[in-house]
């Protein structure tokens, strides 16, 4: 018997969960992009998103409205991502995956520190992207901002998918990620496709950061770190080599976390991360390559 279940409340929590899941998904796709191009998880992905968000924050303090600042920041992040790849990743392009991973950890410290250096440690707040009014659908009140965030996140991912699926450059980038050697013989400038991947990932990160920051009310330079954790978990849950998997994994994680936080009081805020990771681990033990990932065929 399900007497006493407040279904409207559940629906609200699910939408709120999809909203945070949407930001995880955007960042998760950024992680997948770089993972497929270079074989590493970019530990600095969240910090780059944070840095982009602070750039946008500065713009809003200098007379920009939210959306113009959003647009400028996303474009600047794209360029910044490319520049960063050329500066620090290209020199280790041929080194081991572990070496590249450590470089991204170094970047994590640099970007985080630089943000504290430039913007001082006080907390910041940002204007809202969407109206904070609730909207009633079928007798249930949803927050417009939640729906807006879900929409923007999915739109960003969709645009990226269209780019990869239907453009020559997108095809070249996929080919370069799958088979760099053969791609070079085909005339693809593989090294540049990696830089481009960093640019796109950084731009996506900017979208994630700019969706995540306003609802927090106030945020500081560390606000993206838990989001990176969830994005990583969502990506691995879905299968790190599948962008679609990363999106679904992240959305599912967002909903799960929200329901867990609302309805299971024992867990509390401290253990929420741990509980989420434990559940993911359980899933991975059953499906070692994630929900949608392909397990490399191994004959033993």
């Amino acid at each position: 018997m399900l007497v006493g279940v407040d279904w409207a409340g559940v629906a609200q929590q699910v939408v709120a969960g999809l909203s945070s899941g949407g930001t995880y998904a955007t960042l998760a796709v950024a992680l997948v992009l770089i993972y497929r191009a270079t074989g590493v998880v970019n530990f600095a992905q969240g910090e780059l998103a944070m840095f982009s968000t602070f750039v946008a924050w500065t713009l809003t303090r200098h007379g920009f409205a939210y959306w113009p600042a959003f647009l400028v920041t996303v474009l600047a992040s794209f360029a910044g991502g490319i520049a960063l790849e050329r500066a620090v990743i290209r020199p280790v392009e041929r080194a081991s995956v572990l070496t590249i991973a450590i470089v991204t950890i170094g970047l994590f410290f640099i970007v985080n520190g630089a943000a504290f250096w430039i913007w001082s440690p006080e907390v910041k707040s940002m204007p809202n992207a969407f109206s904070t009014r609730p909207i009633r659908i079928g007798g249930v009140a949803f927050a417009i901002s939640d729906l807006g965030i879900i929409g923007v996140s999915l739109l960003a991912v969709l645009l990226l998918w269209l780019f990869f699926r239907f453009t020559k450059l997108g095809l070249a980038m996929r080919a370069a990620a799958l088979n760099p050697e053969s791609s070079r013989l085909t005339g693809i400038r593989v090294s540049w496709t990696i830089a481009l991947g960093w640019g796109l990932a950084t731009a996506l990160g900017a979208v994630a950061g700019l969706m995540a920051a306003p609802p927090l009310g106030s945020f500081d330079q560390n606000f993206m770190q838990p989001i990176l954790l969830y994005a990583f978990a969502g990506a691995v849950l879905g299968g790190i080599d599948s962008a679609l998997g990363a999106v679904i994994g992240s959305l599912a994680l967002g909903v799960f976390l929200n329901l867990l936080g609302t309805y299971v009081s024992w867990v509390g805020t401290d253990l929420r991360q741990a509980a989420a990771l434990a559940v993911i681990l359980g899933v991975l033990l059953v499906r070692p390559a994630g929900l949608f990932g392909k397990l490399a065929v191994r004959r033993v």
Binding site: L171, R174, A175, L178, N179, E181, S182, L185, T186
Partner: peptide
């Protein structure tokens, strides 16, 4: 090249 260089997943 040797092994044809086909993009198997594409």
């Amino acid at each position: 090249p040797e092994g044809r260089g086909t993009f198997m997943q594409l």
